[in-house]
Amino acid sequence: MTTAVTPSATRRRAPAVPGRPARMRVLWLLLAAVLTALLGAASLVIGSREVPWTDVLAALQGSADNLNQAAVTKRIPRTVLALLAGAALGLAGAVMQGVTRNPLADPGILGVNMGASLAVAVGIAWFGMFSYTAFIWTAILGAAVTAVFVYAIGSLGRGGATPLKLALAGAATSAALVSFISAVVLPRADIAQSVRSWQIGGVGGAGFEGIGRMLPFLIAGAVICLLAARPLNSLALGDELAAGLGERVAVARAAAALGAVMLCGAVTAIAGPIGFVGLVVPHLCRLLIGVDHRWLLPFSALTGAALLTASDVAGRIIARPEELDVGIVTALVGAPFFIYIVRRQKVREL
């Protein structure tokens, strides 16, 4: 006796996603969590002055009786911001690459971070905007408009939104937006220096007030992105097959992109446009745990937090007693990696 399989049952069946054994994935997740915790601890110890663990523990308990403990007190919000921003950018990069099926997708390369930056610069220069909440909403709006614009430009012509066309559209848009930011800020000498410093991208000026205003947006964006894991697995098979599996392709793509835009906009509003984290992290994570987004997205968040925190610590060591902003360090790491990905002719799409 045979059992008939109805089309509706076929559409509801989740696609099988090749990947590593579950035990190896769990092991990699645990290792990433341990590495992230160790780097967070290193961020409290390492800086222009080394701080012994006794003073670190005292500062964590609220003490600020000497210079070492006062230094740790200032490093705590910096470390928290580096962890949160890295996790958000790593997660957003993985989602953007899944949505566009583009191995070159990254919030910086696609111009999303720079769109958020322009929106914030306009808000400060023209509308006297100075509250964290206003920064975040404005940055998210600017990121969303830029993302739609770049995708529309990259979709023109033959072949639709190919990886190379999207990368070129994003690079051209970013260059134009940088010029617009300069045009907006240069006439305003009172804000020019602070905007230029923020535009490099860094976590050194972090405070718990800004982190607290950013956190609800990060939580909302992360939840949206993680809920998009199964639809992203379907989209990886192609739009027609995803639709055959019962996915509403346009809705799934728009929802996942919304989560990524919220993450990018919120981070850019507080820390500035930090590039290349969302490019490097997902590629590394795919090598370790495979392409299943149910595992890839949380692993990308953990790895992104580790990478940005490590970059911040490296920036303090390289230029002692001065510091390199984390945006410069990630660019030094990410730019060669971007060139490597572009030159790999076999990587056309995900």
Rank of each mutant, 00 (worst) to 15 (best):
V185Q: 05
T330A: 01
P18K: 05
V203Q: 06
A22E: 09
A32Q: 11
A306I: 08
V326P: 10
Q199H: 13
S311N: 13
A257N: 09
G19H: 07
V195F: 02
N113M: 07
A139H: 03
G210H: 06
D65R: 15
G128R: 09
R78N: 06
L263Y: 13
A183N: 14
P298V: 01
L332C: 14
L67K: 12
G212E: 13
L31M: 09
P336S: 09
Y132G: 10
L245Q: 04
G170W: 05
L110D: 05
G40R: 09
S197L: 06
G86T: 05
I341L: 14
V333C: 13
L39T: 06
E247R: 05
F338C: 11
D190P: 06
A236L: 08
M262Q: 10
L104T: 04
P7H: 12
G204T: 15
Q61L: 02
C225N: 11
R158K: 05
G207E: 12
I191K: 14
A192M: 10
A319P: 04
L297P: 02
I289Q: 07
A32P: 09
G159K: 10
G86E: 04
V17G: 09
L30H: 08
I153Y: 02
A121R: 06
L279M: 15
W295P: 01
D55K: 02
V185H: 03
G157W: 00
E247A: 08
V277E: 10
V249R: 14
